[in-house]
Lab assay of single mutants.
Amino acid sequence: LETFPLDVLVNTAAEDLPRGVDPSRKENYLSDEDFKAVFGMTRSAFANLPLWKQQNLKKEKGLF
């Protein structure tokens, strides 16, 4: 999966995202380093959170 810089994904409308980016899964296009910096946890820890908590975190970080 291709990764993009944080500033390309945060608070970006679906139509302005790079081609192929799923707007409902912007976090998947962050590098592992950016993911950890944004969410303060690994991808696996994030995946283990309840869906509502994942969505709330994504909203807080501008990735929803």
Rank of each mutant, 00 (worst) to 15 (best):
R19Q: 15
L1H: 14
L57S: 02
G62C: 08
M41K: 01
F4E: 03
S24H: 13
V8G: 03
S24A: 14
K53R: 12
W52V: 09
R19N: 15
L9S: 02
D34W: 04
T42F: 05
S24E: 14
E15R: 11
P5K: 03
D32C: 07
N48M: 13
L6V: 09
E27N: 01
G20E: 09
D16Q: 09
V8A: 10
M41E: 00
E2G: 13
V21D: 03
R25H: 15
K36H: 15
S31W: 01
L63W: 07
A47R: 13
L57R: 02
Q55G: 07
T42K: 07
L17R: 02
L49Y: 05
G40F: 06
L49F: 06
L49C: 03
V8W: 14
W52T: 09
D22W: 02
E27V: 03
A37W: 12
D32E: 11
P18M: 03
R19L: 15
L1P: 11
T42M: 08
P50A: 07
P23N: 05
T3W: 12
E60N: 07
E27L: 03
M41Y: 05
K58D: 00
G40Y: 05
N56L: 12
S44W: 13
K58L: 07
V21T: 04
F64H: 15
W52G: 08
V38A: 08
Q55F: 10
K58H: 01
M41H: 01
N11F: 06
T12H: 08
K61R: 09
R25P: 02
A13K: 14
N56C: 15
A13Y: 06
R43G: 01
L51M: 13
A47T: 11
E27A: 02
N48C: 14
A37R: 12
T12I: 10
T3D: 04
P5G: 07
V10I: 14
L9T: 03
N11W: 07
N48P: 01
S31P: 01
Q55V: 14
L49N: 01
E15H: 12
K61A: 15
T12N: 07
S44H: 12
K59N: 07
K53M: 14
L1R: 14
F4N: 02
P50L: 02
K26Y: 04
A13R: 14
K36Q: 15
L30Q: 01
K36A: 14
M41A: 01
L30S: 01
N56F: 12
L9R: 02
M41P: 00
Q55M: 14
A37T: 13
Q54L: 01
P5F: 04
T3Q: 08
N48Y: 09
L17G: 04
P5L: 04
V10E: 05
L9W: 01
N48D: 13
R43M: 05
E27F: 02
A45C: 10
G40D: 10
E60T: 08
A37F: 13
N48Q: 13
R43T: 03
A45N: 09
K58G: 01
V21S: 03
M41L: 07
G40T: 05
Y29L: 04
V8T: 08
G62M: 05
T3A: 07
V38L: 11
V38F: 06
K53E: 15
K26D: 02
G20T: 09
E33M: 10
Q55D: 13
D22M: 04
M41R: 01
V38R: 01
V10A: 09
F39S: 00
E27W: 02
P50V: 04
E27T: 02
P18Q: 03
G62V: 01
F35E: 00
V38G: 01
D7G: 09
F46V: 00
G62Q: 05
E33L: 10
K26C: 06
L63N: 03
D32G: 05
P23S: 07
L17I: 06
T42R: 05
T3V: 13
A37Y: 12
D7T: 09
P50W: 01
F4G: 03
L30I: 08
N28Q: 15
G62E: 04
E60G: 06
R19W: 10
W52A: 09
A47M: 14
R19H: 15
V8Y: 15
F4C: 06
F64D: 15
T3E: 06
D16C: 15
K26G: 02
A45K: 10
Y29Q: 02
E2P: 15
W52H: 10
N11T: 08
K58T: 02
P23H: 07
A13H: 10
L9A: 03
E2M: 15
A13G: 09
S24Q: 13
K61T: 08
L6G: 02
L51I: 12
T3Y: 15
